[in-house]
């Protein structure tokens, strides 16, 4: 059996990682909540963002954290353009088409990454990648602490934007009442594109926060998206609070099952939760009833 200190330390580290998972899930749940589609390209876009961080670091020498504001804006624009110019027009207003278009996009993006970077797994080392904070008896990876702080700050900013700004309110209005929103002069196509852009901006921030400790390859997205999807289901489809809380829970569960079952089985806890949620509370913690 492990000592209490080891368990608590693993729990805290799990929560820290969970906060970044939550940010990935946030983008997914936001797009689902407003456009009512699962964005299958979410993982591939995350991988693309991670490669962008890596490349910028190697070419320009910018620290991943310094890249956050730039990459966020670029990925917002990318997401906006994708929805407005590709996904929206190609779907002709049918949800099942949107699914296929995002699936197709993910294949295109992954293969572009493969062609550009090869299939090797890469990582980015910073001065703080292996540094730790000593908090009492616990050792916490600095990059994880920064990552969690950045993820929570981003989530708080997004929440402020959605609850205070006119555009944010328009997004929430479109999520529940498209026709009612149109009749107030809200341009639904624009709101969809802004939402998709915000989802991509979340990914850009997550990529900057992940890279100091996590590796990247063109297929990495699917690993995160499986976890993110579990978080979204656990938290309730479309719920932002649910995604945040779900992320923290999943991070803790992953860390605990890793500790007790061994690293290779760490993710088993996540999928047990996934199945249990679907069996016992399909609407998730904060989900609306269908």
């Amino acid at each position: 059996m492990y000592s209490a200190d080891i368990i608590i330390e693993a729990l805290i580290n799990g929560l820290l990682t969970g906060a970044i998972y939550a940010l990935v899930a946030l983008g997914l749940t936001l797009v689902y909540g407003v456009l009512h589609i699962i964005n299958f390209a979410h993982g591939a876009l995350l991988a693309a963002a991670m490669f962008a961080v890596l490349l910028t670091n190697q070419v320009v020498g910018l620290d991943p954290y310094v890249q956050i504001p730039f990459l966020m804006v670029i990925f917002f624009a990318l997401g906006y353009g994708l929805q407005r110019l590709v996904i929206g027009p190609a779907s002709h207003g049918r949800d099942e088409n949107i699914l296929l278009v995002t699936l197709g996009l993910s294949i295109v993006i992954e293969n572009l990454l493969l062609a550009g970077f090869g299939s090797d797994t890469r990582s980015l080392n910073t001065d703080y990648s292996f540094a730790v904070f000593e908090v009492g008896p616990y050792l916490l990876g600095q990059a994880r602490v920064f990552g969690a702080g950045g993820a929570l700050a981003t989530a708080a900013l997004l929440w402020l934007f959605l609850s205070r700004s006119d555009t944010g309110k328009a997004i929430r209005a479109v999520a529940k009442e498209k026709i009612g929103a149109s009749l107030q002069g809200i341009d639904v196509a624009h709101v969809y594109a802004v939402t998709f852009g915000l989802g991509c901006a979340c990914l850009a921030v997550a990529a900057c926060l992940l890279l100091p400790t996590f590796y990247v390859n063109p297929k990495i997205g699917s690993a995160y998206v499986l976890v993110a999807f579990t978080i979204v289901v656990l938290g309730g489809m479309g719920s932002i609070v649910g995604a945040m809380l779900g992320g923290l829970i999943i991070g803790a569960v992953e860390s605990m099952s890793g500790l007790f079952l061994g690293e290779s089985l760490g993710q088993i806890g996540i999928f047990v939760i996934f199945i249990l949620t679907l069996l016992l509370k399909p609407t998730g913690l904060f989900g609306a009833k269908a």
Binding site: R172, A173, A175, K176, E177, G185
Partner: peptide, 20 residues
């Protein structure tokens, strides 16, 4: 009516002036 059920009364009214 097509009001926004997930939003408060004030927010619903505020959105009435979104486009004009």
């Amino acid at each position: 009516r097509r009001i926004f059920p997930n939003m408060g009364v004030r927010e619903n009214l505020e959105l009435g002036s979104y486009g004009r």
